[in-house]
Each structure stands twice: as C-alpha cells, then as structure tokens.
Design a protein around this nucleic acid. Structure first.
Lengths: 334, 334
DNA sequence: GTGAAAGCGCTAACAC
DNA sequence: GTGTTAGCGCTTTCAC
C-alpha cells in the first residue's frame, strides 16, 4: 500500500512538485484555482505528508524523550498525559523510558535518547547528582533538558517544573497537628532526592514551631517501593516508639506503611492518621482513602512540554523555574 | 552543536562518503587499514548516524504505536516494558496513546498514529467492535495491527497475544469453592469486552458444575473504574443478596468493591473473600493483599513486539494467536 | 504564478 | 577497494 507522495500528485496534476508543496503549505504564490485543484486531489488520493522527510529537511527529529523513575503508580502517566496534550498536536513523538529508580538505568536511558537524537528531554530524576556528568554532556550537545518534580541542585542552568515541597509539607503537617496529632512520624524519602530534603525540612520546621519535634520520629525508607515503606514502619514499631500519625514522602511509601498498620490491627485513622505527598488516583483506591498533597500533574506535564518547546525554538532562551500550586486533599485516613 | 555527519568524516579523512558508509556498515569491501582509520575518526569526532535519514531511505518510520485503554493501573506500563525490551535495542520508537476507556478517543488515537506513519500498532482495545472499521482501514493501508489482552472477534485476521481467560477464570472460581465459598459473586466487565464474556463463562461453568449457580450473583459494572466497582457492589448489597466472595473482572473493579466492603465493616476475607484478574503490583499494594490471576504482562509485551516485527518484515506472514500461561497468586484476600 | 534544481544524511547500484 | 551518482520525500532558493 504505497503512500501517495507529492510526486504522485505532481504527475497526476501535471504540475511541478514545488507548486504542490506551496499549495499544501498555504503559500500565497499559488493561483487560487490551482490551489483548489491540488487540495482536492490531495484529499481524494489520500495524501499524507511524510514526516520523516520533513524531519530530515528541518534537521529535527521531532521527538522528545521522557525519562521517569517508575510507572507503577499513575504519577508519570498523568504527567505524560499533559505532555501529550501539548506535543502530539504539534507532531512530536514522545519516547518514554523507565529508570526503575536506578541511576544506572537512567544513565542508559539517557544514552538511548541521545542515540535517538531527541530534540529535548523531560526528566524526573531517580537520585540527584549521580548522573550530573551526563546531564551536562547532553546539554553541551545542545539538547535541552527540562526537569520536573525531582530536580537537581542549582548548579545546572535548566528549566524546571516543581511544587513548593517545603511549604506544602509544612501545611500538611500543620493540618495533622490541628486535628490533634502530636506524635507525627515523617517517613522520609531517600536523601539523594532533593524533594525528600525539602519535605523533611518543612516537617521539621512545623514540629519545632509547635515544640513537638523528636528526632526519633523521622524514619528513613531505604528505597521508594511499597515494601520499603512497610519495612520502615515495622522497624519504627519494633523500637517501641509511640506515634499517632504518619506523613509519608510518597503514596507508595504511605501504602506500605498502611499495609503494615492494618496487619498489626492498628486502626487508621483512629490510632494512626496517615497522609502523603503525590496526587494520583492511588490515594483514593485504598482504604481508608488517603489524605495527600495533590500535585497538578497533568498541568505540570503541559508546562514542562511548553518549556521544552521554548528551548527547542531557542536554546539560549533563559531557563525558567515554574512553581506550581498543589492542593491538600483531606480524605478518610486523617 | 552540529552533529557530525558522514560527509564531515569524508572531508576529514579525504575519503568518499560511500567508503565511510561501507566501513560503518561492516561491509567487507573496505581495506582493513582504511576501516580502522574510519572507525577511529568516527569515534573521535563522536559520529552518530542520523536515524531520520536512515528512515527516509528505508521508507520506514521505525515507530510503533501503542494504544492502551488506561494508565492508572500499572497494567499497560508492564506490557510497555516488554515492548521496550525488544524494540528499543532495534532503534524503534514507541508512541503511546491512552484511550481512557473511550472508543472515540481510541479512534482519534489511531488516526494520530496513522499521521505518524507508524510501522505497526500494538493495541489493547477499549470496547470491541465500535472501531472495527478503523482497524480494517489501517490494515488495508498495510500497517500491521497486533492485539493483546482485549482482542476483537475472530473476523479480523491479526496476530494476538492473550491468556486463556476462560480457563483461568474457571480455576480461580474453583479455588474459591475449594476454600469453602458457596455464594460467589462475579463482578463482570463491560459485555463489549470479549474477555469479560470469556471470564463470566468460565465462572458460570464452574458454578454450574458445582450446582451453585445463581443468576443474581452476576453484577455488571457500568465501566472499568474504581468507582464503578464500588457502585456495583453497593447495589448488590442494597438488594440484600447474600454472598461470601467476589471474583472481579479486574483489579480496579476489585479495589472498588473492597473499598465499599471496608466502609461497611464487612471483613475481608472473613466475611467476603475477594479475587481478581490482572497481575499488577496494585494487587499487593492494598489491604488485604489481593488474590488474583497474574498475567505475564512484560512477557506479553515482548511477544507482541515480536509479532509486530514479523509482520513488519513480511506483512503477509501468517497471523498468530499466542496464548500465554497465567498464574493464580493466592494472597490474603481469600 | 510556476518550474527546475539543490540539498537534508544516508545507502546502494554502478563504475573503475 | 574506492569513488561517483542517484534517490528516499520534501522545502526552498533561484529563474522565468
């Protein structure tokens, strides 16, 4: 089923390919009559432009790389949706790679995207710093890098999309306090993730403000999975440290913790309230439904895509850091 | 940061572009000495082949479309992983589109993929039949269509990857009976999905075999979301129909049901056991962890990708229907 | 207002 | 064993 090309049209209409091209591009230098004939013929014969040829010509690959740490929660999928909203209508393809929270895989993914000659890369880091050399290498090649959610340290001059982790964590913790909780555990994410530090700092600030800070209430998950969350809370309990609530770095960690609490017949929220930070459907698919900081993920994807487009148009355009607002959603777990 | 091309190499080495090309392609018609010089230079200057040029040349887009009904559960992401395993190393891009369980969106997505001129499409249907015309249209264009999980009726001559829904549903239901359950509810998926019919038939067969079939125990969810599952079980309960277990069409529906049971303080599995059909991490992230039919999703993705490659190589190669084995995983919910 | 021709980066058929 | 050339589908000078 050979595709109709501009050449076919040119033969069919006994016109040069350039005229056809012009008509198709709405160039004014085409007789109205001719234009119509061409458009009709194109329609009738089912002409579709060959994107590959256009890309070769323009020197772009019209492909954007999207690098995410995981796709087990709907987090990345929602951001992806936003990116697609913006980029698909513009004819961009999106190549997705999953890093499985592993910096080595992330590294390989970035190399893969380099092979693919992507026009830009939108990325949510695994762990900060480990791959800094590659980020810089890629940028030096002239490929714009846009970060969202988990971003690297200031050192890199890149555009970013984030929420105010520090403030939102503070607000969530303060909310827990207002509902009468005093022994609030923070299940912290890996310290190599900048957001983990922001959130723990927000947490600390509030607990100190209310004079109820206790170092022992911070538990560090060794990783980002459900099992890590479960294990962390198990250890805490085995140490006989009392607590009446948990503020977790992510939905996944929170779910792990909740699962263990359930197993131990600890009631949520009666005995222990649970809150998290994320904003995916996951929070409302468990029991009890989870109170959490809801990030505007789809919107974040859209913004990230727009930042990418800006940089594609002009790579030396100034980098922006867009701070999005996030909403606290109160559900049954608190 | 202009990319190094074969022409640059040719100038740099004072050789023709064809010799360079040959060396790079490991063509034997190149002097060993020359070959080495070329490869060294390519390495040193950081030569990367321009995939767009290759694609234009070969007439392929080296792009595969992937159409899925949703990405809220990790289901599609796992299949995607399998597809990526096979296709990324071969230089294929994968374009993902999400249909949100809506046939209209699926339709638009398929049209989008047509614009992108993909070499093949791997698809998990929303609802059967509604878009049959488009499937046929696409195939007539010469674009291979590979179905997995939810497949269309026999009428289409396409390759497919599935599990034996009928048998596995039977086994799961039989397992529930063996654990002493007698009033087993089946929460059925939309009848427009072939698998829903297969699974309900498997369910029926076993209940009839044990002489405990009761029409009232089949509830039909109006859709595929968590809320649909919740609503369906709520209605059942409001009708005062007694039951001691649920076999749900999908994880998502099962979770909705579980949520409602929890709300009503109905104990799982003590009062009501719950089992589902799927095979994602979701089943082990809830409480109690969910017994389910675990499909080898990543493997299914790999097979689907291979089937796609077969068809790309030779579109008239015979269509295959690969039936994968699925495992019953017994967890705390039963 | 239209056509001829060059060129994007690469491969392959054809010379030599 | 190497070079020349054409061509993949398209846009875009440059002529006329």
């Amino acid at each position: 089923m050979k595709r109709i090309t501009i050449k076919d049209l040119s033969k069919f209409l006994s016109l040069s390919t350039s005229t056809i091209s012009r008509a198709l591009l709405h160039d004014k230098n085409v007789n109205e009559e001719t234009r119509k004939r061409i458009l009709d013929a194109a329609e009738k014969l089912g002409y579709k432009p060959n994107l590959t040829a256009l890309n070769l010509q323009s020197g772009q690959s019209k492909t954007i790389g999207f690098v995410v740490p995981e796709m087990i929660t709907p987090f990345s999928a929602k951001v992806l949706k936003g990116i697609q909203n913006i980029l698909y209508p513009l004819g961009y393809r999106i190549i997705i790679t999953q890093s499985d929270e592993d910096s080595c895989i992330e590294r390989k993914n970035l190399q893969l995207l380099e092979e693919f000659n992507v026009d830009a890369i939108i990325i949510n880091l695994c762990h900060e710093t480990y791959n800094n050399d590659i980020y810089q290498h890629i940028m030096k090649q002239g490929t714009p890098l846009i970060f969202f959610d988990r971003i690297p340290h200031e050192s890199l001059d890149v555009s970013k999309v984030i929420v105010n982790d520090y403030i939102k964590a503070s607000l969530m913790v303060e909310y827990l306090i207002k509902t009468g909780r005093k022994r609030i555990v923070h299940m912290m994410g890996p310290a190599t993730i900048r957001n983990a530090m922001e959130r723990v700092n927000g947490y600390k600030r509030i607990l100190m403000k209310y004079n109820i800070f206790d170092e022992n209430l911070i538990v560090q998950a060794d990783g980002m999975t459900f099992e890590h969350g479960k294990k962390a809370i198990k250890q805490l309990i085995s140490k006989n440290i009392e607590f009446d609530s948990i503020f977790a770095f992510s939905d996944t960690l929170a779910l792990g913790a909740m699962n263990y609490l359930h197993e131990q017949k600890i009631r949520i929220p009666d005995d222990v309230a649970v809150a998290s930070f994320s904003g995916t459907e996951l929070s409302s698919m468990v029991f009890p439904q989870l109170t959490s900081v809801q990030q505007p993920l789809e919107k974040m994807g859209e913004i990230a895509a727009e930042l990418a487009l800006e940089k594609i148009k002009n790579n030396s355009s100034p980098s922006k850091c867009i701070m999005m607002d996030a909403e606290l959603i109160y559900r049954a777990s608190t």
